[in-house]
């Protein structure tokens, strides 16, 4: 853990003190083990207290934490023999959307994800997780492939949204997203989507029109970013925190609205503090969601998926 968020300042200060004391000890100074223990205890309590009542805006920051596990981390951790597939067969390979085939706990699956990257080089390579039409067309192609070979689809969603660019519009960004949603709804195989970080609008639903939608405890899922909403409705991007509250974009609220099926608890202090444990928890939740779907045939899956989405919004209210 090296990157502290703005609201984690008191935690950062405590961690700094512990570090300082340790250095004193290492340098042969007085034994401060007791003091270090006391401070660490205090830090743990503060961490638990802070994360027990994160505001929606704080959650947005945690969801975007640079050290939070990204789609490729989940693939590396949960998928054996991952064989990446590339390209939309028409224009290009879009690295913002990753996809391929592999084994999840022994079962052959198709995997999709939006990848933000974890450092400057990979962020640029993956275009910060903002896909272009070729990315959604690649997703659609892989979903169709999965359907033909009976492979369940697992997706890991983490994107601020589809890329807003001139070329993207010229090549049919809207059509590509619409077709990707359609491919998800039509897939004759089980489809489990997990919102692992940021579920940004159309770019997210393109990979999440699934039988079961899981969402990490501190992930966000929204029709527009808090900043975007604030600048439109409040005419002031600085009102992002207020907009984040109003949008009800947290996992708990979405579960209450029946728009996601399962909230996956994160390790104390967020997925970025215990990456492996967080990814294991997602693996278990995905396996639990997938299991009952495996018994259903393609036609039943499609009918149920359709009904699930048609029911949404008819009753959804907080």
């Amino acid at each position: 853990m090296s990157h502290f968020l703005e609201f984690e300042k008191p935690l950062a200060e405590l961690a700094g003190k512990v570090e300082e004391l340790r250095r004193t000890t290492d340098a042969g100074g007085i034994d401060v083990a007791e003091e270090v223990g006391r401070l660490q205890d205090k830090a743990q309590k503060l961490l638990a207290a802070t994360y027990a009542k994160l505001t929606p805006w704080q959650k947005a920051q945690v969801a975007r934490h640079p050290e939070r596990p990204k789609a490729l981390d989940y693939v590396a951790h949960l998928i054996q023999g991952f064989t990446p597939l590339a390209g939309d067969r028409a224009f290009a390979d879009d690295a913002a959307v990753i996809g391929g085939i592999g084994r999840f706990r022994g079962r052959a699956v198709a995997v999709l994800g939006t990848e933000k990257g974890h450092d400057t080089e990979t962020r640029v390579k993956h275009n910060f997780g903002m896909a272009k039409p070729e990315g959604y067309r690649k997703a659609r192609r892989i979903m169709e492939l999965a359907g033909r070979f009976g492979l369940p689809i697992l997706s890991f969603v983490d994107t601020s949204g589809a890329f807003p660019g001139i070329e993207a519009e010229a090549r049919g960004q809207a059509e590509a997203i619409a077709r990707s949603i359609e491919a998800g709804l039509e897939a004759p195989v089980p489809f489990v989507a997990t919102i692992i970080g940021e579920g940004g609008s159309g770019g997210a639903i393109a990979l999440a029109a699934a039988d079961r939608v899981l969402m990490l405890e501190h992930a966000i899922y929204s029709v527009i970013s808090p900043e975007g909403c604030a600048s439109i409705l409040w005419r002031d991007a600085a009102q992002a925190s207020t907009a984040a509250e109003a949008l009800r974009l947290t996992a708990d609220d979405l579960k209450k609205l029946n728009l996601v099926d399962t909230v996956v608890p994160e390790p104390m202090g967020g997925a970025h503090r215990a990456r492996e444990a967080a990814m294991d928890a997602v693996g278990n939740a995905v396996a639990a969601a997938l299991e009952p779907l495996l018994a259903l045939d393609g036609a039943s899956l499609r009918i149920r998926r359709r009904e699930k989405f048609l029911d949404m919004g008819r009753t959804a209210t907080l």
Binding site: Y221, L254, L257, L259, G313
Partner: peptide, 14 residues
């Protein structure tokens, strides 16, 4: 309507 409005995308595709 937040994510409720987002879900109208798959709903209208259906």
């Amino acid at each position: 309507e937040g994510a409720v409005s987002l879900m109208q995308m798959p709903r209208t595709v259906i």
